[in-house]
């Protein structure tokens, strides 16, 4: 079982590296268009959000379809999401603003769209830090409670996306519907459990 778990996680990590690899290759082959920094910012942000939604999709998929093998992917997806969120933020700090800390601070404090994104990133830090098996064991129930922050992080990321969007909301709406659906499954599971007929 441990071997299968490792194979599944390794595949997920490899797939998770593909967007970063693609961006790197595109960067060195002039494939990012006229405004490469903007392209890197958008891509890393989008991958972070997709990985975050995948993280939230693991448990519902496991429960609904009985796919127990999915379980270890929750952490892998979560860490991929966090990695891309960090890349997204680093792109903004290092490439876009070239460490102009005054301008960055002004953005974070005064522009709600940046504040929301920064909040999402900050909320993910304690989750990444406590993602080890040792931490799970040590923290017990407190770990479960702490990791509910992932819902807040996802909502903050969604707000960041909506407030950062100009006119065309087609893609954000698709992402928001998926997040909404994933959150609703939690409500549904909760009610099932209360009714004592939960699938868990």
């Amino acid at each position: 079982m441990a071997a299968r778990r490792q194979v599944i996680q390794s595949i997920a990590v490899l797939v998770g590296c593909l967007p970063a690899l693609g961006l790197t290759i595109a960067f060195f082959t002039d494939g990012l268009g006229a405004n490469p920094i903007e392209e890197i910012t958008h891509e890393t942000g989008e991958v972070a959000l997709i990985a975050l939604l995948l993280t939230l999709a693991v448990t519902p998929a496991r429960k609904l379809f009985g796919w127990a093998w999915l379980a270890p992917l929750r952490r892998t997806f979560g860490l991929i999401a966090f990695s891309y969120a960090c890349l997204h933020f680093l792109t903004y700090v290092a490439l876009d603003y070239f460490f102009d800390l005054g301008a960055i601070l002004e953005d974070v404090l005064e522009r709600p769209f940046v504040t929301a994104g920064f909040t999402a990133l900050c909320l993910m830090i304690p989750l990444a830090v406590t993602s080890t098996r040792a931490a799970i064991k040590r923290m017990g129930q407190r770990w479960v409670r702490l990791h509910r922050l992932v819902y807040l992080a996802a909502i903050a990321a969604m707000v960041h996306l909506f407030w950062g969007t100009k006119a065309d909301y087609a893609e954000p709406i698709v992402f928001a519907c998926i997040l909404g659906g994933l959150l609703l499954t939690r409500v549904w599971f909760q009610r099932q459990r209360r009714a004592g007929a939960g699938p868990n």
């Binding site: 405004n35 070239f98 953005d107 522009r111 940046v114």
Partner: peptide, 17 residues
């Protein structure tokens, strides 16, 4: 702009604003 500063700009082709 309510969502970003207009104090600086990136000239397409440049790295720094």
């Amino acid at each position: 702009h309510p969502r970003w500063s207009q104090a600086r700009e990136r000239r397409i082709g440049d790295f720094r604003r």
